[in-house]
Simulated assay, not measured.
Amino acid sequence: MLYPEPIQGLVNELAKLPGVGPKTAQRLAFHLLNRPEGEAEALADAIVKARRRIRYCSVCYNFTDTDPCTICRNPGRDPGLIMVVEQPKDVVAMEKTREFRGRYHVLHGTISPMEGIGPDDLKIRELMDRLQTGTVRELVLATGSSLEGEATALYLARLFKPLGVKVTRIARGIPMGGDLDYTDEATLLKAFEGRQEL
């Protein structure tokens, strides 16, 4: 063992975080050890408090500390327009635009046969229950453009279109400020397919 057990334990736990490899975990551990004890305690307290108080909204399955969440409780949000996203972080990204005035449904993943994740592992049944109320007129599919995101969107479209609900997909294409020569073929194709009249 290179470090005393408490340091090695901290490095091991930090290395479990997404995007954190052994060297970054080591750097973070030493940074935390060099900070005042109060800062380390505040970080630990924030982690424990978030873990204990945050749960899924019983309507949309976003993270919340109140149930239902503030978006689902907001009477100014359109209950007939639901955007379906993969993860809670996608709700945050969409809310930053300040343009979407509907509500959300968080799937908590995508269909991925390679990882053993099927439709029953996602919050699809719960979305079906929301549609049974008859108040939803449009589903906006906002899953990612990965193979899994596309497969999930296709699966949902085939599942919900027969119910008489309008199913749309967010546009994909070239990002603002992007150059065509740096854009991959699949993105260019989607941008071309999603072209609009000016």
Rank of each mutant, 00 (worst) to 15 (best):
L2S: 13
E5L: 14
I7V: 15
N12Q: 13
A15N: 13
A15T: 11
L17A: 09
V20K: 03
G21L: 02
P22S: 02
P22G: 11
K23Q: 11
T24E: 06
A25E: 04
A25Y: 08
A25K: 01
L28V: 06
A29E: 05
F30N: 04
F30Q: 00
H31F: 14
L32E: 07
E41T: 10
D45P: 00
A46S: 14
I47Q: 05
I47C: 00
K49N: 11
R51A: 12
R52C: 01
I54R: 04
R55L: 05
S58K: 06
Y61I: 07
Y61M: 08
Y61N: 11
N62I: 02
T64C: 02
D65N: 03
D67K: 00
T70S: 14
I71C: 07
R73N: 14
R73E: 15
R73I: 07
P75R: 07
G76K: 15
G76Q: 15
G76L: 15
P79E: 08
G80Q: 07
L81K: 04
I82V: 15
I82K: 10
I82A: 10
M83G: 01
V84S: 11
V84R: 10
V85L: 04
E86I: 00
Q87R: 13
P88E: 00
V92P: 02
A93G: 07
M94E: 12
M94V: 13
M94D: 00
R101H: 13
R103F: 02
V106A: 02
V106I: 06
L107A: 10
H108Y: 12
T110N: 14
S112L: 05
E115G: 10
G118R: 00
D120V: 10
L122Y: 07
E126M: 01
D129W: 11
D129G: 14
D129R: 15
R130K: 05
Q132K: 15
T133A: 14
G134E: 07
E138Q: 12
V140P: 09
A142P: 11
G144F: 04
S145K: 08
S146F: 09
E150G: 12
A153D: 02
Y155C: 09
L156N: 01
A157W: 12
L159K: 15
F160S: 03
P162H: 05
V165S: 07
V165R: 02
K166A: 14
K166Q: 12
T168M: 08
R169H: 14
R172S: 13
I174Y: 07
I174H: 09
L180E: 12
D181K: 14
D184S: 12
D184I: 10
L189E: 11
F192P: 03
F192T: 13
F192Y: 14
E193H: 14
E193P: 01
Q196A: 12
